[in-house]
Design a protein around this nucleic acid. Structure first.
Lengths: 350, 350
DNA sequence: AGTGTCGGTTAAACCGTTTCAAGACGAAAG
DNA sequence: CTTTCGTCTTGAAACGGTTTAACCGACACT
């Protein structure tokens, strides 16, 4: 059951605030004060206490402090898959921001399983974290509401929440799609293909909407954009999509793939078939993964500020925790950015 | 400074063990027992208490429990870069194992900076984590020893530690290099190239040693292996290495790259130059990243059990914590595995 | 009836802090 | 010489649990 029943007993008794007080010849209250409100204690005393702290290598027990004060210096980070570069980067940003405030971030990897997510939320609740940064699975579960009722602050990452019941931070996928297509349209492309993942995925649907919007703005019909849908968003699927494209009655001028892996696959299929990229068809991808820059022909891609996303989300959460009930929920949308590379350099140049 | 001074005061007073006891008509001690040693309390009482717990939605305060009991249900995970797929996967494994014991894992991302690493260790110490899972930067710092003196258990990940002062878990890079070269040698390759990163990196040096060992075992001179050293281990560096290889007096039969990105780069350079892969030269990479399977020609690669590594490391740590002083430090070396794909399918077939 | 003993329960001490009402001291004001 | 402040400091009460020694019936055995 519990592996922590009894440790073999090599526990050196850590020095506590009491011991410090005793040796420094002051009361524990004073030691606490020099730790938390140095301004309120006399210079001389402060120095003396600090000296003792140093000498004893005293390390305050944050847990005990939290218990008494009702605060908490921990927040939970719940992601579906830390292995996904997107979330890894977000995590890095979040942890980075938290560290500045000496806040510990406990990592929860739900593995795309709602049951796991629930389990983790339980653990977080038991540990009395001050708040949770979460990319919730599926529909934002009512569980989050119950958490909030318990006093936990919640902010959603990369998932805009209706009714601004929580703070949320995400990047504007619609705008991302728009940017990409605008870029392709600019040099005069008129026959476009959209290589997309399942429209049931929010980002896929949004990026498509963005593409449409760009078309609308340019006064073009949506018919000028042919959609090729892939089951998964991998290089392999991209290769297949590329093959399908080659069978179209007419080759497009430009292709927008809603993810870099798809784009790389498409590119490979086209190049293998003797189609020039970007000479014959321009390609832009999405996510700007490392690989994009190192593709056979460097890939233009829409990049998302993942690190900043994580940082901001954490900052928002910490702010909400500090502000308490006077807090107004914010819904921040980061703007994606286009990184232009060779794959879209000079469409139809030849 | 501290953003947690005062929250706006929307703290609903959580129900505690006391309230449960009062309503259930038992003492707090009994409630505690129901929670921690259900076997010691009478069936009827247990049921009654559980009912009340349910009804009140009581959630035990792990922090308070830890404080009194001297245990700790948190452990720290310190990695140089969570964005690195290797560590992401290790983290996933570690978190996964911890979750089974209801242990919270606090994530620390040192960003390859010793100063950060130190800061994080401070935070972990203050939070009184039971142990630390760490991939320490540079030489295993004396800091770790001081941690251990304080009663913290430490296990090192992917970094074997001299003198078995700690438990450590790593994968056998020497063996990995050996496997790769054995595989290339089997079909009769005799002129090999090793595309390596800086030998100052432990894994690079080890994998080279492994390659040599395979050579020795096969009764071949080390001269049959030409080493091409790259500054960085990226696709771009691989392409350059490939270019350099093409200028060699004679093309090799087979190439072993100490990382998949290098391998993909080399492959690209060769194929672009009209060299057949695996027809003219076979290639094997290292790490078995997702991309390997989806390379232009699917890449044979040495794969490391990263998830298992993380899981095992965590299990070891938890075990050490449970065992206490009676613990014997273990040094576990995982065996890497060769995933054979097209890039080495039929060397010199033509 | 006296004595163990055993399963179940309890009251009180304790973990390492923060917090807060109250005290001590000296200096400025009356 | 009192008062009145203001600055520092203090002691004890929390915080929400766990732990331990003691207690209490009831039941079995001499």
């Amino acid at each position: 059951m519990n592996r922590f029943k009894d440790g073999g007993g090599d526990e050196r008794k850590l020095t506590g605030i009491r011991e410090v007080a005793r040796i420094a010849g002051v009361s524990v209250g004073t030691v606490s004060n020099v730790l938390n409100r140095p301004d309120v204690v006399a210079e001389a005393t402060r120095q003396r206490v600090h000296a003792v702290i140093e000498q004893l290598e005293f390390v305050p027990n944050r847990g005990a402090a939290d218990l008494r004060s009702g605060r908490s210096r921990m927040i939970g980070l719940v992601v579906p898959d830390i292995t996904n570069p997107f979330f890894a980067e977000v995590a890095r940003g979040a942890v980075n921001a938290a560290n500045e405030d000496n806040i510990a971030v406990v990592l929860c990897n739900s593995d795309h399983a709602a049951s796991q997510e629930d389990r983790y939320l339980d653990v977080l609740e038991q540990h009395r974290v001050a708040g949770v940064l979460i990319n919730p699975l599926g529909k934002v579960p009512s569980r989050l509401e119950s958490l909030r009722d318990r006093g936990l602050k919640v902010v959603c990452v990369d998932r805009s929440v209706r009714k601004s019941a929580y703070c949320s931070v995400s990047v504007d996928d619609v705008r991302g799609g728009e940017i990409a297509v605008e870029h392709l349209l600019a040099p005069g492309a008129r026959r476009l293909v959209l290589v997309n993942g399942p429209a049931s995925l929010r980002p896929c649907a949004d990026r498509r909407r963005g593409a449409w919007r760009a078309l609308d703005k340019a006064g073009l019909s949506r018919d000028s954009l042919t959609e090729v849908v892939c089951r998964s968003m991998t290089i392999r699927a991209g290769v297949e999509a590329g093959a399908r494209m080659l069978q179209l009655p007419e080759l497009p001028d430009a292709v927008f793939c809603t993810n870099d892996l798809l784009a790389i696959g498409v590119m490979r299929a086209l190049v293998n078939a003797g189609v020039g990229v970007p000479g014959d068809v321009a390609i832009v991808g999405y996510d700007d993964i490392d690989l994009a820059a190192d593709a056979a022909v460097p890939l233009t891609s829409v990049s998302q500020p993942k690190f900043a996303l994580g940082r901001k989300a954490m900052q928002l959460l910490l702010a909400e925790i500090a502000e308490g009930s006077s807090h107004e929920h914010e819904r921040i949308a980061f703007q994606p950015d286009l990184t232009v590379r060779d794959s879209s350099a000079a469409p139809k140049a030849g």
